[in-house]
């Protein structure tokens, strides 16, 4: 391949003339190419980041009457918290190497008598497990899914159809979207309240659960005084500090 056979005019008068072959040594070329490839491989980003769309309400003042009041039976409040170690860094689980986030959740209107046992409960973000090949929800996902059962039932049905290639991805997406916003079904309203020590990851995890459980109505708010009192009541009961007071200075850049 790298040799060029030289034919001296084709005339073979003077006996067999030596056939000349010119060989080109490609080794340096390959060396150089390899270097270039290495350079390009190191400089490229193959994996692109994903995005999570988020819509916040406008900051303008809204009257109490204009606000959409959630039905008591439909409301679920999640108070988020991230555990910190003594060095003021997010505490990491030894086994999985992941940050520990806790969720304190309750249903309906906050119990202001602070007497009901188990009114507020602790959960964590846990991924799906598999039991005999069937997906099993755990942690907070199980609770949210149960609240959104009607929507999820339809959603699973569409998903099966899509997987059996009865409908296209686009059809599936639009059906799922319509289904999640279907007001005839009973759907929960989730209020996400990140506590003072929550990290960004905790919030993303919570928004993720909304996506996974097809919850279309949720909002992000700051915890109220009542929420703090609820947590304190829980602390008193269990006898341990749950949410530490804000350990960070209010982070004002510059």
């Amino acid at each position: 391949m790298a040799e060029v056979a030289q034919n001296d005019g084709g005339e073979k008068k003077k006996g067999a003339q030596k056939k000349m072959t010119i060989r080109v040594d490609f080794t340096p070329m390959v060396d150089m190419n390899m270097l270039l490839i290495t350079f390009f491989m190191l400089c490229t980003t193959m994996i692109k980041s994903q995005t999570l769309q988020i819509v916040l309400p406008s900051n303008e003042k809204v009257n109490k009457e204009q606000q959409n009041q959630a039905k008591e039976s439909e409301a679920i409040t999640l108070i988020l918290d991230t555990e910190y170690n003594d060095n003021n860094k997010p505490k990491v689980d030894g086994e999985t190497g992941k940050t520990i986030h806790n969720i304190y959740w309750y249903q309906g209107i906050a119990d202001t008598t602070f007497t009901k046992p188990d009114f507020i409960q602790k959960e964590q973000f846990v991924g799906d497990a598999r039991e005999n090949g069937v997906k099993v929800q755990q942690g907070i996902r199980k609770i949210l899914r149960k609240q959104n059962e009607a929507v999820m039932a339809n959603y699973e049905e569409y998903k099966t159809k899509w997987k059996n290639r009865e409908i296209t991805k686009e059809q599936f997406d639009s059906l799922a979207k319509k289904n999640a916003a279907d007001s005839t079904l009973s759907r929960p309203v989730v209020i996400i309240k990140p506590g003072p020590n929550t990290t960004y990851e905790g919030l993303i995890n919570a928004l993720d659960e909304m996506n996974i459980n097809q919850i279309s109505r949720y909002s992000i708010q700051l915890p109220t005084h009542t929420d703090t009192l609820l947590i304190q009541a829980l602390e008193k009961k269990s006898g341990e500090t749950i949410i530490r007071p804000t350990i960070r200075k209010s982070s004002n850049p510059s």
Partner: peptide, 30 residues
Amino acid sequence: IFDNLQTMSLNKFSLMTALTSEEEVSSTAK
């Protein structure tokens, strides 16, 4: 940052994340 965006009436935006599956979640099981 959210608050500043809201103040400026830019209520829709996106958050950059990396991909994970439903089995995995960036937190721990008990």
